[in-house]
């Protein structure tokens, strides 16, 4: 198998996996608007301060 075909196969696999994961696990994105205040936000289940989105803090 050429490198080009390997690349295309892997790309297809990753695309299908990501699509399936969002279909099977909608909760990965479903709670973004969970809080209706100015202080907190949810990303992929993580309860964050809104200011975290502009932060470089990665712990």
């Amino acid at each position: 198998m050429t490198n080009r075909r390997k690349f295309l196969r892997n790309l297809l696999s990753v695309t299908v996996a990501l699509g399936l994961s969002k279909k099977l696990f909608p909760n990965l994105i479903a709670f973004d608007d969970y809080f209706d205040d100015d202080e907190f936000i949810i990303r992929n289940g993580w309860v964050l301060l809104k200011s975290d989105l502009d932060s470089t803090n990665d712990y």
Binding site: F25, N27, A30, F31, Y34, I42, N44, G45, W46, V47
Partner: peptide, 8 residues
């Protein structure tokens, strides 16, 4: 990071 069943 909360499990989905806590939020749903």
């Amino acid at each position: 990071q909360l499990a989905s069943y806590i939020l749903d």
